[in-house]
Nucleic acid binder design. Structure first.
Lengths: 232, 232
DNA sequence: TCAATATCTGACTTCATGGTCAAAAAGAGC
DNA sequence: GCTCTTTTTGACCATGAAGTCAGATATTGA
């Protein structure tokens, strides 16, 4: 994507060129690549600089610091993600259940395109490297995501598709956070070894749990009140 | 609890005493206090040493390193927590719903006793200081907790109190992780400001969501199949 | 009393990268 | 060509607590 060797050491040409228009984009692109490969902490600013064909000083000419670099990356990626989500929902005029299913799947299933996959890798590493920065990076997207989910739940409640007494805001937060934490622990930390679990099952089951918790029920009194036969 | 000034500088007495039986306990107790107050990273081993009335070298005489100190602390606390939980459940021979409610409340509501509260503070700080260590520290308790919850769900399924087709292991993991991540973000990171939420509501609503997702339902077909009137 | 040993001390070492900045180089304008 | 400004370079710096270890001190046992 970035032409690296184009003007590299043209015989007795200038040592470097001024390219203020392109540098920021190139640096950001390089940062995404390198962060995704090595993780946030393990990435040296010199690595990014090298990958972008500049030196560290140049990064500081265009960005405040390492955190800012990461934050810009995350914001851009999340904006794109949300734009896609809206298109997806516009196309999907099914029940609110199916819209919620779409949102959750899109949000938590493995991404197929490379850029999105890279951003996820960055997030995974970031969570175990710098949780505070991670929180800053994902907060915006999460709050927006929660608002979207709550909106869908409320509309479903209005039509009677979902039960009226469900706590929508809490539901949105609990299910997304649960899925997220599971994924974080499983990929970057060692949980997968200790407690192996398939991500597809995790996502699908969670979504079903989520939708089931929203659906109206008829309590089966006979079962509900039943007690164990023998007292312990 | 720890007699600090008892033999402190008795006139021309010995500079220090050998107390190999008590040192480890005292160091651990001091570590819990200081970690809870200042957080893991901000705590200097010299601080703990001072609080325990020894010097840093002594800590290294009894413990491998700072992490080991933390890990021992966590393990001891969690063992105690589980013991209490079992007693609590033995006393509570109600429905499986109510047992699950008890477990979740005990696990996530604000603790009342000081030691337990301190351990929570330690965990909160640890999560944002050293996520990998945090994961190691809580993994054991979580895996055991999940097993307990799954057991209760399965028993409830056997009696018909819960629906048969629920994915118990996923349910256990999602709800606990969701609640946990919410609490972590809200206390040690800045989420509470951006997205204020009452912890009591969070816990209670989550539990209800959890139980509702386990309960058998009678699908209301008329509502379930309904689609939005206008196609997009 | 005097080793021998267990316990404890505290000064010292160590280590690597994010960030700074003066100066060099490029290029625009005249 | 010659300034002047913008862009880029790259050598340098600052930092701070975890962990080590040689030796000091207490205790035990004979």
């Amino acid at each position: 994507m970035v032409k690296k060797s184009t003007a590299q050491r043209r015989r007795s040409g200038p040592k470097w060129a001024r390219r203020p228009e392109d540098r920021p984009r190139e640096i950001l692109a390089a940062a995404l690549r390198v962060f995704a490969e090595r993780g946030y902490n393990a990435t040296r600013l010199d690595d990014i600089a090298a990958a972008a064909g500049v030196t560290k000083g140049t990064i500081y000419y265009y960005f405040k610091n390492k955190d800012a670099l990461l934050l810009q990356l995350a914001q851009a990626g999340d904006r794109e993600e949300f734009a896609r989500m809206e298109v997806l929902l516009a196309d999907n005029a099914g029940s609110y259940s199916s819209q919620l299913r779409t949102v959750m799947r899109k949000g938590f299933a493995e991404p197929t395109d490379e850029a999105r996959r890279q951003l996820r890798m960055v997030y995974l590493a970031l969570h175990s490297d710098e949780p505070r920065l991670f929180a800053r990076a994902v907060q915006g997207a999460l709050v927006d995501g929660w608002a979207l989910i709550v909106k869908l739940i409320e509309r479903g409640q209005a039509t009677g598709e979902f039960r009226a007494d469900v706590d929508g805001p809490v539901a949105a937060r609990i299910f997304t956070s649960g899925l997220l934490l599971q994924q974080l622990w499983r990929s970057s930390l060692g949980l997968e070894t200790l407690d192996p679990f398939d991500n597809g099952r995790m996502v699908d089951s969670s979504i079903e749990l989520f939708l089931h918790s929203l659906r109206p029920t008829v309590r089966l009194r006979a079962v509900e009140t039943r007690r164990k036969a023998r007292p312990s």
